[in-house]
Every structure is written in structure tokens, then in C-alpha cells.
Design a binder for these strands. Sequence first.
RNA 1: GCCCCCAUCGUCUAGUGGCCCAGGACACAGCCCUUUCAAGGCUGCGGCGGGGAUUCGAAUUCCCCUGGGGGCACCA
Length: 489
Amino acid sequence: MANIRVRFAPSPTGHLHIGSARTALFNWLVARRLGGDFILRIEDTDADRSTLAHERAIMADLKWLGLSWDEGPDVGGKFGPYRQSERLSLYKQSAAKLLEEGLAYKCYCSEKELEAERETALAKGKMPKYSGRCLQITAKEEDRLTAEGRKPTIRFRVPVKKIVVKDMVKGDVEFDSEVFGDFILVRSDGTASFNFAVTYDDAAMKISHVIRGEDHLTNTARHILLFEALGHQPPFFAHMPITLGSDHAKLSKRHGATSINEYADQGYLPTALINYLVLLGWSAPEGQEIFQPEELVSLFSIGRISKSSAVFDIDKLNWINGQHIRALKKEAFLQLVTERLQEAGFVKEPNSIENKLTLPKVAEAIRASVVKLSGVAEAAKIFYEEADEPSIQAIEELKGDEAKLVICDLFSALSALEERKDIDLEQAKDILKALSERLKEKGIKGKGVYHPLRLALTGRDCGPELFYLISIFGREKSLQRLKEALQYV
RNA sequence: GCCCCCAUCGUCUAGUGGCCCAGGACACAGCCCUUUCAAGGCUGCGGCGGGGAUUCGAAUUCCCCUGGGGGCACCA
């Protein structure tokens, strides 16, 4: 199959939605997998709702996800322009031609009249459809209506026939064109309708595969008719199941965060989001579940897209994000942790000598417990804030003779170290090992050793491993904390 | 109301007539590891919507029912 060309065609009416992102992803995967082109086309024919700011936001979201396009309004391409608002004259020309060929006609019906018609049809239990009344209109009537000030729309004269959508996901789907009436190609204000602009552009831009949500399946029947009228071979179609919320209704704002940027803010990794999104409706042949984007590119196939819609499950996303966080290279994770700690105000000068030394240790110390990046500050705060006031229960625990012995032991071990010298991870481990051996002789071990130390150092009963604490705090801060703890003893 | 799509554990899914008294993952529960939490490991819980038909044999094919979803605009 030569020249694979796929497109993602969002309307710039908001941020990039989870569902749209998934559509974009599948298109991108097909393009990258088959060595085709991925085209970004902005469908802004609805001037009231479309804004340039939204267009930019969507592009930023796509870039954040790592979905790069080969042609688009910003990068150009051979088939531009890539904003439908800039293609209006093309649509007009095309519509004029259809009019001339008798494949379309002018309709002078007002919105009010159409609304009344629709209600009648609905009441009678029919699929609402345009009657085709204006098809019969005479030149005289036309003059009269024009004189009245009516501005016509241009309707497509839908041929009566059966249409088979050969869908790569759903299989052959048959429609009877009689169920949908002559639909509008050009609105009375002269702008193209969605159905017309989409079809015209997919033809003009030589799109080979249209991959979009299942909600467009009925439209596709119309589009096929239009492709024929336009004298074009229709592209291949793949309608993927849509994403549902937990109540099994189409995913929307009331289900919580639905736009990509919200997930970015919460600290989901773009690779994790991609990983999760692809799993909503696609599965790898070997059952693999965790992938980097490049792996997906080599594994993806339209044939393995499932037919039924999937429910968005935040628990699984969280798990996948954790997997991706743990798979991150040390430097990459360090960078992300540093950013979050700066935002939290814990780190002012990431390049200071001290931070250069401790930040890598902090990052690794909290890595296993972080699900989302938004949890970084919380997990790392023990290193930057004052120790918690020990609870009454903790104080009770510290009061024991054994606890006192343990704390004093570490105190003297640390005191013996050279002042102002950094305690590295290995050294910290050695110190604790030696301490544990000394105390073992006195019959104190396991929990009896480490628990009091953790309480003394952090005031908490959970957190990263102790050697991290000592190493990151360093000699002075550790001694200080131990001394403070001793006052409770 | 009409048209279209879909139907395997709570959720995401594997499964294309015998390999399936259905496999994996998340979640949940228990155990192990561990000073703790987390991570990790192990075990468990849990499903082919119902009814017919085809067949020696159906999760898998066909029909009906039921259920869910989508569409039906001078919105995209």
C-alpha cells in the first residue's frame, strides 16, 4: 500500500481531551508503524467556538505526549492550508461544481421551518430527515425567496442506495441512505459544514486511512456518498470504540479530569499516558502491558483494536505511571523530582554543591513510593521540613531504655565522623551495619534498633530506608535530630 | 421513536470449533521479603448476559431476546 497518510483533525474548542488524544495516538502509531505521514488539520469551521488559543493548547498537549506531525498549520506541507477556516474558498468552489452537476441544490428553508419538520418526524417515530422540499423549487420561487432576503444553504442530493462501510475494526456495516436526508454542505453564511469540509479535505489531502471514533460511523456513510460525488475513491476507514466513564457513559467533565494537560499537571508521565491510552481498546499479541512509545510503534496494528468500548480506569493508569516512573533513567527522574521540589519551594538552587550531592539521593529514596509526580513533594518533605513533633505514642516508645541505648549509639557513631564531611550511601549503610552488630550483642535487634532511630530522625513511623535518611541529612542534621529526640527519653 | 455498533472476572483484556471445567493485568484479600510505608515476589477471590439452532464437540458460527453504547443539527 503506497503513501500511507493519516490525519488527526481536532476542533480547537478546548484542551486536548483524553478521547481525542487516543484517536491522535492511534493515527500516529499507524503512520509511524507503516512509515506514513501524520497530518494535523484544524477543524475550525465553527467560528463561534474555535479559538487560536485552543489550537495552540492542543498542539502543546500533542507535543507533550510526543505525538509529532509531519504536516500541519505550523509546519506547513504540500496539501495546505491546514486550517479549515483558511480553506473556505476551496469548499465554495467545490460546492459550486456540485451545484452545477446537479449533485447538490439550494435550500431556502428557514431554521424554524426545519425545526418544525423535525419535530413532526420525531413524533411520528421516524428518523428526522429533510424532506427535500427545495429540490422542486422553481426559478420564480427562487427569485421571490431571494427578494425576501432569504439566504440559501446548499444541500447534498443524497442518492437513494445502500452504502457499505468497509470498516477495518467493525467489518462491513450497511446503511440505507434513505434514513438520512439531503444534508447541508454549505451553510447560509457561506461556510462549509463539518461533513463537507471533512470529506473535501480528506480527499484533497490524499488521506489514505481515516481512523476516528465510533461516533462518526453514521457520518461515514454520508462521507462515502460525498467522496463518490467528488469523484474520489474513499479512503480506508477504522472506527475505534469510544472511551467511557465509570458509569459507562461517554467520558466527560463530570467524570473528573478529562484533558491531557490536567494529567500532565498531576504528574503523569507522557509515556505512561500513551501506554494506558493504547491499552484502552488495543492489546499486544504477547500480552505485554508496559511499553515505551517506540515499542508500540513496532507492535501496533489496526487489526488488534477491539470492537467494544472501554471504561477509563484511573487505578490502572496509576499503576502504569508507577511502572514508568520506576523505568525512568536516574538522570531523567532526578530532573523531574528537582522540578517538583523547586515548585514546592524546597529547592532554591538546584545546582548548589549541596543540592548536587543530595538531590540524586532524595530522588532514589522516594522513587518506589511515588505514583504520580504530584506526590514527589509530599514524599520528600521529610528531607526539607522540620521533623514532625513525635506523637504521644512515639514518645512512649522513645522512653524505653533500649531506645535510648540505640539513639545514643548512633549519636556517638556519627559524632566520631569528621565534621562537615558528606556521608555517602555506602558509608551510611556501613554505619548502620556496625551499629546493628554492636546492639545485637546487647540483645537489641531488628525493629528495636531501627524503629526508634526512624522516630528520632523524622518523628514518623514510616518513610524511606534509614541509610537514605542519614546520608541525606548528613552528620550535623542527624546529630541535631538525635539530640532533640533524647530530650523525650 | 428510528438507524447503527457492541456484549468474557468490578475494570482493561487473551481467546477466531477441540490446546479453555477460560489465560493475563489492574483493583481487592492473605502470605513472604523488610525497622516502617512503598516497591517486589507468591497465593487467593472473581467472568463467557439469557434462550434456541448448527456440530461428535461451542466463549468461539447462526437466529431471537435482553442489556449497554453511539448517531439522528445551518456542532464537530
